[in-house]
């Protein structure tokens, strides 16, 4: 689980880096680490996806964006009141999360509810019901195929949305200059 510790450290760096470029590159690294972790946790499909998406697409998108906008972050204003509230919110959420974990089944416990209910059927029956060995695929595409339909609808929505917002031929004048002078 050193990997997790490493992840936390990377995440801290990502958040702290003032240079957005550095931040984004580290973010790519972070995604790769996450993908690695997923491999360790037997989630090969997820690892594959995370590597492709997190380290690949997201990074490209981020780079594209910071190339267009300022590459540096302004230092967070040291106003105590603005800093206090986020800390409180985060602290409360954290406490709730930890509180929530206390009654969780232990990590890797084969008798955890999720391993004894519903899921076994996938592992046991999918060979006869669907006939393909990759259970992730059979769940993804058949048992819960509808989620996947939703998923590509999400992509579809996002792609159309980006087209609408910043696609070519948009007629919004560049208002930056006006406001700078005004």
């Amino acid at each position: 689980m050193t990997l997790l510790g490493f992840l936390v450290a990377t995440a801290l760096f990502v958040v702290q880096a003032r240079n957005l470029f550095v931040s984004v590159i580290l973010m790519g690294l972070f995604s790769l680490l996450v993908a690695g972790l997923f491999m360790v946790l037997d989630a090969v499909d997820v690892a594959f996806t995370e590597a492709a998406v997190g380290a690949g697409i997201s990074t490209v998108l981020f780079l594209g964006t910071i190339a267009l906008v300022a590459p540096k972050e302004r230092p967070v204003a040291p106003r105590s009141r603005r800093q206090l509230l986020p800390f409180l919110v985060v602290g409360a959420t954290f406490a709730l999360l930890i509180f929530g974990t206390l009654d969780m089944p232990l990590y890797g416990d084969p008798n955890a509810p999720i391993h004894v209910y519903v899921a076994p059927r996938y592992l046991e029956q999918s060979a006869t019901e669907i006939g393909i060995p990759n259970v992730v695929t059979s769940v993804l595409a058949s048992y819960r195929g509808y989620d996947t339909l939703g998923e590509i609808t999400v992509i579809f929505t996002a792609a159309l949305g980006v087209m609408m917002l910043i696609g070519r031929g948009r007629k919004f004048p560049r208002r930056r200059r006006e406001t700078d002078e005004a």
Binding site: A43, T49, G54, I114, A119, E151, V154, V162
Partner: peptide
């Protein structure tokens, strides 16, 4: 075997995440 169901859920969630990111960035 590890439980495949969360894997499937997360595959979906990753995709949703990147879609959100793309929109946010635009």
């Amino acid at each position: 075997f590890s439980n495949p169901l969360p894997h499937v859920l997360i595959l979906t969630a990753i995709v949703v995440g990147v879609a959100t990111t793309a929109l946010g960035l635009s």
